[in-house]
């Protein structure tokens, strides 16, 4: 189908963009990559009266990496972030999540910040932000503010952004030293939204004991759901960690639903299995991180 008619603005300054969006009120929508918004408009699930195209705004297409983390501008395409070697070294979970986002052709146009603002509970990059405890920088008529991930995702396709605000960047903090991450998911077809996906971060101390572990779940809750796995695995070495206890913690928290793609029971089953896989992979990455550059140390086959 074709989108319904709208008034189009393509401002060249952020101030103009914010002003035009504020004037449009609830009928206004921001267009960045459009890889979620335009399908919804084509199917007339969305029909904004005013579209503010931010693709001409200067300075929003940069990835800034410092020792603390990675700041991603609102016009950075998924592909460019995925290809950024410095960003991948600082926050490996970025690339681990990005390669699961739809197909490469969609990633060529879609933006990481746009995907987060869209806040689909099945999308990968909101989960990456939530798991790492990142934040969004948003600009509105009354200035710029930062919103932490925990306050940002408020429901399916709903965020803590107010009317008239534009997301300017996303900040992904680097995990603590000795951490490893992983992102695993299962989808019906390559590139589809996952029936369930799990991102994990595991942190080890100098004795290679787990000091912290968290997972974030997609497609099994109204928002990307972060579950602290400390009580199940902290103090153990990866090879003897009780991953089944971690899966129990997840099972208590998720709220899977039946739909055309999978039953709630199946999604719950996937959440358990993927919890164990994601934690094992993240622990393996943490062991490599702790060992530093060089040959990989202890296998953790026993964890599986």
């Amino acid at each position: 189908m074709k989108p319904s008619a709208f008034t189009y603005h393509a401002p060249t300054s952020l101030d103009d963009a914010v002003r035009v969006l504020a004037e449009a009120g609830p009928d206004g929508k921001v267009l960045a990559g459009g890889q979620s918004l335009i399908p919804m408009m084509n199917m007339r699930l969305a029909a904004p009266a005013v579209l503010v195209d931010i693709n001409r705004l200067p300075g929003l297409d940069t990835v800034r990496v410092d020792t603390g983390g990675v700041r991603v501008g609102a016009l950075v395409r998924h592909t460019d972030l995925e290809d950024d070697a410095q960003a991948a070294r600082t926050v490996p979970l970025l690339r681990q999540g990005l390669r699961l986002v739809a197909h490469p052709v969609i990633r060529n146009r879609g933006t990481t910040v746009g995907s987060i603002v869209h806040a689909d509970p099945s999308a990968e990059m909101p989960a990456v932000l939530a798991l790492l405890g990142g934040s969004m920088e948003v600009r509105g008529p009354s200035g710029t503010r930062s919103v932490g991930a925990a306050d940002f995702f408020t429901g399916p396709l709903e965020t803590g952004m107010a009317e008239g605000e534009i997301a300017v960047s996303a900040y992904f903090p680097r995990p603590a030293p000795g951490s490893g991450t992983a992102f695993v998911e299962i989808a019906r077809r390559s590139g589809d939204y996952a029936m369930c996906g799990v991102a994990a971060v595991v942190t080890l101390d100098a004795d290679l004991r787990i000091t912290a572990a968290r997972c974030c779940y997609i497609s099994v809750a109204p928002v990307p759901l972060v579950v602290d796995m400390a009580e199940a695995v902290v103090g153990a070495v990866p090879a003897s960690a009780d991953l089944s206890a971690a899966a129990d913690l997840a099972a208590d928290r998720i709220e899977p639903e039946d739909d055309i793609h999978a039953s709630a029971d199946y999604r719950a089953h996937l959440a358990r299995v993927l919890t164990e896989r994601a934690l094992a992979e993240a622990a393996e990455a943490a062991l490599r991180e702790t060992a530093g550059p060089g040959p990989h140390t202890t296998g953790i086959g026993a964890m599986r």
Partner: peptide, 10 residues
């Protein structure tokens, strides 16, 4: 890129 997911004006 998908030309059905871009507006010509953009």
């Amino acid at each position: 890129m998908r030309s059905c997911l871009m507006f010509a004006v953009s």
